[in-house]
């Protein structure tokens, strides 16, 4: 029993170490204007090069640790966003990039817009701007990595708030 606890503890530390050193990121556009998306792409390219933090853009939600979400959530994209979020393995983290993802931005009140991202899924880090500069996105990622240092930061498995 005691040995099992020690083993679990060591295993948790190894997992946290691995996660902090190489978070795999999934990008989902839930109705954005592209502005944030091209800036996210720019953060991956040589001048900003977020890969130096071990961040890798991943295509499949099942392999991703972090969901970067841009844009206000449209009625069509809401179900897909939920599905993508649910497909990600625990523990999972969400970064909302851009004014629209935070508050609806310029699209507040549009008939096909549900609202901001945290009305649909829980969000850990907010990066404001229209669009945020790549430096701001890197800052958001770095803050999230800081948060991940402690294993307790992992959110307990919970029902998704809709």
């Amino acid at each position: 029993m005691e040995l099992g606890k020690v083993w679990n503890d060591v295993f948790d530390r190894v997992k946290t170490w691995a996660r902090v050193n190489s978070p795999w990121v999934l990008h989902f556009n839930s109705g954005s204007c592209n502005g944030c998306d091209i800036e996210i792409l720019a953060t991956l390219t040589p001048r900003y090069d977020v890969e130096r933090f071990g961040v890798k853009l991943e295509g499949s939600p099942r392999h991703a640790d972090v969901l970067i979400c841009t844009g206000p959530v449209t009625l069509q994209a809401r179900d897909r966003l939920l599905r993508v979020y649910e497909q990600m393995p625990e523990p999972k983290f969400v970064i909302a990039v851009g004014s629209c993802a935070i508050s609806g931005g310029a699209f507040q009140g549009c008939y096909n817009v549900v609202g901001h991202v945290d009305e649909v899924i829980p969000v850990d880090i907010y990066v404001p701007g229209c669009p945020p500069r790549p430096e701001a996105i890197i800052d958001g990622v770095a803050k999230l990595l800081g948060k991940l240092q402690t294993p307790a930061a992992a959110r307990p498995v919970e029902e998704t708030v809709i």
């Binding site: 204007c33 844009g71 449209t74 310029a106 699209f107 669009p131």
Partner: peptide, 26 residues
Amino acid sequence: AHRGIEKATESRNWTQSLYLLERICG
């Protein structure tokens, strides 16, 4: 990514619509 921008311009004035339409595409 349909947000309903065309309809939204009708409830904003000419100047406000400019900023909204600019955000059709980044």
